[in-house]
Structures are given as C-alpha cells and as structure tokens.
Design a protein around this nucleic acid. Sequence first.
DNA 1: TTAATTTATGCAACTTTGTTGCAATTTTTT
DNA 2: AAAAAATTGCAACAAAGTTGCATAAATTAA
Lengths: 144, 144
Amino acid sequence: MTASRMNETQIDHILKHNQLSVTDSRKKILELFLSSNGALAHGDIEKKTGEKFDRVTVYRTLQVFMEKGIIHTIPTADNSVRYALCKDDCTEGHHHDNHVHFVCSSCGNTICLEDVTVPDVKLPKGFQPEEFQMVVTGVCRECQ
Amino acid sequence: MTASRMNETQIDHILKHNQLSVTDSRKKILELFLSSNGALAHGDIEKKTGEKFDRVTVYRTLQVFMEKGIIHTIPTADNSVRYALCKDDCTEGHHHDNHVHFVCSSCGNTICLEDVTVPDVKLPKGFQPEEFQMVVTGVCRECQ
DNA sequence: TTAATTTATGCAACTTTGTTGCAATTTTTT
DNA sequence: AAAAAATTGCAACAAAGTTGCATAAATTAA
C-alpha cells in the first residue's frame, strides 16, 4: 500500500465517518488540508486545486466541513478567513481549539503550533467564556 | 462646559494631534468609537452614522485612523474586521495591543477587556514573535 | 448490476464588501 | 479673504460570497 493510497483511504474514511458523500472536490480539498501543516484561506484552496472546481463548490465544501467539525476558522487581524483541520475529537460544529496559531508576517502562512496550548486567563465577573483563541504574529521558522 | 462640548474639544484635539483635518465625518466616526466601549465593524459605523457619509469616506477614514494609530483591528474567528480605539501611547501605525478581546456570541459585540492582559507563551525555536493577540468568545455581561 | 433516489456540482445571476480615479467641495494656510 | 492643500462624494470597477435551479454524480434499494 503506497503512501498516497493510504492517504486516500484515510480521506475516504473521514468523509464517510462524517456522513458525507465522497466526491472529487471534497477528497481533493481534504487532501490539501492534510498535506499542509498550516491553515488555508479560501483563495489558497482555489489556487492549489488549479481551478478544477467551481468557486461555489469550494465555498460549499468549506461550509460543510465547518458544520461537520472537520475544519475550523482561525482569527486573524486582517480580513482574511483561514481554515485549519480540527484535531482529535472535534466532531461537533462547535470547536474548542486549544493551541496557539502563528501568522507569519513575511510569507503570510498560518501555522498551528500544536504543542503550544492557549493559557487560561481570568475574566471579569459576568463574562461566560466558551472559547479561547490566541494568535501570534511574527516571523516563522522558514522566513528567518 | 457641557459633556458634549468637552467631548468635541477632545475629539478635535485627537484629530489635530494626529495632523488630520477636522471634518464632519472624522469627528462623527471618532465620537462613535469614544462613546462605544467595544469594537466596531465597518458596517456598524455605516449604520450608526445614519448613512450620512459615503461608504468610501468611511473606508478612508478608518484607513487613516489606522495609519495614525488611532484605531487598530481586532482578530475575529469569523470574516468581519473590527476596529477599536487605541489606548495611550499608540502613535505609530504598528500597534502592540496587550489586552484580551471578548466577542459575545449572543449580541455580537466585541469588548476590550482593558484589565485583562494577554499572557505570554513560549514558542518553539525559530519563531520570532512580534505581537500576541487573544480573543475569548462567550456570553458577555449584558447577555447573561 | 442496474434502476431509483438522494446528494453534490456547476452555471448564471445577484448581493455585499472593498478599491481607485477624478472633479467638486471643504478645510487649512498665508 | 484668497490661495493652497486636503477631503469628500460620485461613478465605475474589482473582489468576495450567496442563492436558485437544472444537470451530473454518488449512494441506496431492488
């Protein structure tokens, strides 16, 4: 079993496990996320799929992946929405992501720092927290 | 001197201090920020100014305020860009904001938690941090 | 394996959001 | 009060995202 073959099995499994039809676009987009250790913007996906799929399909695929909890959005200071794979038991639409995200100001990539957990903070009385997200901007390893 | 009168003096001073012409739109938009303890999206501003100013003017005003360091953007998990007043000595375009932002999932408001500082985190080797931002999602004081 | 059913895709048309150039207006300077 | 500088609003555009619907593909049932 080759690496790509194994990858395809994994991809199919994720889709079926989430009760999604296995289609070319979904397989390809999911593969992109699996082979990228960072986060992807809608535009990145359109470019990397080589305009093989309609813009609308990409939008709808991301939407479905969000609903199923396969991916989640990452906050950025600029106006770009970035998506990243959910790790582990992220089966609901609601995602509680507890690692720090790093946005490189040089290459623009967003990297999930899996090993860096978001520290807890104390909030003033009356604020009921549901999710903590932390974004660090700076220069990444590749761009030093 | 009435409150509104004092406010106007304050507003004029901020604009002049930043070498900006004192115009109706800038005064009004700055007033909005001063009277709101949270962050504002472009759309909020358009609504609250009662469509008195052209969309382009609002965009350009926000842009200029950003350049002058009067306001800064706040990261959000959705695709909306939100702006908030810079406190204290934020005279450059580059802004290092060190307080936590709270986004209410009920009313949608973004509140600057001035008293809650962003905790430091250790990054893996090779990552050069420039700015740390933290966003907490949940239910705010008003919406409990 | 094929037919029936369900689901996803792609197209077109549209809305929303943001940008640019330029003439007219307003603000600031002299 | 006039000249110079800066800002505004308009129009036209570009980019980003959404919706309805017929076609095509994937899944289920026979």
